[in-house]
């Protein structure tokens, strides 16, 4: 019996619109507290927003969008001209510790 992937879970209540849309991450697996047990993926993801030069976790969850995560640890990848960063990884709770490259 294969163990299901466990990921850190967090969605931000920034606005009603964004929060409502991001509730869809809960469909990828059951959430208890800050941990989600993935039903449909082996990938954990983190989406970060850069505010005044500092990254802030916007979403931590089981993957719903990326579909692929070759790395075991969560390496930051820039998006939209460094306004956002994302990371994907394939070990339990790996999305709690993002690795920032140079």
């Amino acid at each position: 019996l294969q163990q299901k992937r466990r990921c850190f879970f967090q969605i931000t209540e920034s606005t009603e619109h964004n929060y409502r849309q991001n509730k869809k991450y809960t469909a990828a697996g059951s959430v208890s507290g800050s941990v989600q047990v993935c039903e449909t993926t082996d990938c954990c993801v983190g989406y970060y927003r850069i505010i005044n030069g500092t990254p802030k976790a916007d979403v931590l969850a089981c993957d719903r969008i990326e579909k692929s995560c070759p790395d075991e640890t969560c390496k930051a990848q820039p998006r939209i001209n460094n306004q956002f960063f994302t990371c994907m990884c394939s070990t339990d709770l790996c999305n709690g510790n993002i690795t920032w490259g140079k």
Binding site: S14, T15, N18, N22
Partner: peptide
Amino acid sequence: VDWNADGTFI
């Protein structure tokens, strides 16, 4: 995953 001034959203 799209984005706006308030963050990211599906």
